[in-house]
Amino acid sequence: MSGDSAAVRRGRPPQTEEQAEEVRARIVDATAAVFAREGSRGLSVAQIIEQAGLARPTFYRYFGNASEPLRAVLDASNDGLVGGIRAALAGTDEPVQLGIRLIDAYVDWARGHGPMLRPLFAELHDPGSPVSAYRERALDDIRDLVRKTFGELGRPVPAALDLDAALHVCEYVVYRLSAGTEPGSDPDPALATEARITMIRVLLVTLGTRDDLAYAMELPGLFPDP
């Protein structure tokens, strides 16, 4: 028997593209689960394959190390956030409605992460974590979206510091909302309402115009009575 024939018989049957994608997705899902428990510093190939129920050679058929499937997890997270913000910015020029849509986009993004949200927020400001670099990439994409949208709507493009302040408050509000919420559950309605109002106020002051503020002052419940 030739060496080539022996290799074919001893090897595993070739996978279809669909089967390969299923295994790859299984590894990525297992990586997300390990990351949720251990954070990026506790992530290892050994833990991923144990979580996925796969052999080590199977893992290395798709990824070279534990960082690669983590990048896939973070890519999906960024895509979800930026895509949600893109949809929120589309179709409205009304400042209060824009604020509601933005905070809802952030909340929807957070809801889809379940227990993975804890290490994501814990590592946002850790320069040694890959999460930090991905966060900056997402913020860059969101900044570009906001500037582009405001320009297309004929609104003043916000100053860099004002825009960053608005985005960081969005991030903090989502953290506050998610901190006391069971993974995958909706936040407390009263707290969600309070968060929307806070976010709208911040957006009006940081990204709005004088006319926006004058309009908002006439809306009941948005600002406390003197």
Rank of each mutant, 00 (worst) to 15 (best):
D75Y: 09
A76P: 09
A76C: 00
A76F: 08
S77A: 10
S77D: 15
D79H: 08
D79N: 12
G80E: 09
G80N: 10
L81A: 04
V82A: 01
V82P: 06
V82Y: 12
V82F: 07
G83S: 01
G83C: 01
G84A: 02
G84E: 01
R86A: 13
A87K: 09
A87E: 11
G91L: 04
T92A: 01
T92Y: 00
D93I: 14
D93G: 09
E94M: 03
P95L: 00
P95V: 05
V96C: 04
Q97H: 04
Q97Y: 06
G99A: 02
I100L: 14
R101T: 02
L102T: 04
Y106C: 06
V107T: 04
D108S: 07
W109K: 01
W109R: 13
W109L: 08
W109F: 02
A110K: 02
R111T: 05
R111D: 05
H113W: 12
H113M: 07
P115A: 04
L117T: 01
P119N: 13
P119R: 11
P119K: 09
L120G: 11
F121R: 01
F121V: 04
A122Q: 03
L124I: 05
H125V: 06
D126C: 03
P127M: 07
S132K: 02
S132L: 05
S132Y: 00
A133E: 11
R135C: 03
E136W: 06
E136T: 10
R137A: 15
R137M: 15
A138H: 00
L139C: 02
L139H: 05
D140M: 12
D140H: 11
D144Y: 15
L145A: 10
L145T: 01
V146H: 09
K148P: 15
K148L: 15
G151Q: 08
E152T: 10
L153H: 01
G154N: 13
P156D: 01
V157Y: 12
V157A: 14
A160C: 07
L161F: 04
L163Q: 08
A166R: 07
L167D: 06
L167H: 03
H168T: 14
V169R: 06
C170Y: 04
E171Y: 12
Y172N: 15
Y175Q: 13
R176S: 07
A179W: 00
G180C: 14
T181G: 00
T181R: 08
E182S: 10
E182P: 04
P183V: 05
P183A: 07
G184A: 02
S185L: 15
P187R: 11
D188F: 07
P189V: 10
A190Q: 10
T193V: 11
E194F: 11
E194V: 04
R196E: 07
I197D: 15
T198C: 02
I200P: 06
R201A: 02
V202W: 05
L203D: 13
L204M: 11
V205H: 09
V205S: 12
L207Y: 02
T209F: 12
D211C: 03
A214C: 08
A214I: 12
A214M: 06
A216Y: 10
A216E: 03
M217I: 09
E218A: 15
L219S: 09
L219D: 00
